[in-house]
């Protein structure tokens, strides 16, 4: 999906410029996709992706052995999104903007009609999922995180994560039937 490999943890801890660039190249589009599918506008998603990397850089020197940087990034991005949304709801002037936002379907050069229709249906089905189920589904199916990692990212039990995933699958089965 993204050919840029993740740099080794030692280089990330040392904040080596090449490693930082590689991290951005590797994760920025994936984090952007995750946030857009949760409902963030292009502008908000860019801002939150940026903030995720800023926090990663500040935290990097203390990352423990065995850290999974991807899971860490998705956890931070998801928390930033939730925080942003809370504040956006409090700020009445942003309500109209928020209400008008839907994830777009610009997926690049794949213009095969069938693939596009399938993706459109998938995007529509995803958008109809409750957010608590959608974020689990996106992290497990879309980003390949383990249920334990998703549970840690969302602050829920692994059993709860599995239940949400199962419900998301059932919901999508019905929506895509």
């Amino acid at each position: 999906m993204n050919p840029t490999p993740e740099p080794p943890l030692s280089a990330i801890r040392a904040l080596a410029p090449d490693a930082i660039d590689a991290l951005v190249t590797h994760y920025a589009p994936r984090l952007n996709g995750f946030l857009r599918r949760l409902g963030a506008s292009a502008e908000v998603a860019e801002e939150l992706v940026q903030e995720t990397f800023i926090r990663l850089v500040r935290h990097a020197p203390t990352l423990p052995d065995g850290s999974r940087v991807g899971a860490w990034c998705f956890t931070v991005a998801r928390n930033l999104w939730r925080s942003h949304r809370r504040w956006a709801w409090l700020d009445g002037t942003r309500l109209l903007e928020f209400a008008g936002l839907r994830p777009s379907v610009g997926f690049g050069p794949d213009d095969a009609l069938t693939a596009r229709r399938t993706r459109d249906r998938l995007e529509a089905a995803l958008a109809s999922l409750p957010e608590s189920h959608r974020e689990v589904f996106l992290l497990v199916v879309g980003e390949g995180l383990q249920p334990q990692e998703v549970a840690a990212a969302l602050g829920i039990s692994p059993e709860n994560a599995r239940q949400r995933l199962a419900r998301a699958r059932r919901h999508l089965e019905e929506a895509l039937a």
Partner: peptide
């Protein structure tokens, strides 16, 4: 059997 969800390029 869903198609993979592609990243959304910035």
């Amino acid at each position: 059997s869903l198609p993979p969800l592609p990243p959304i390029a910035l």
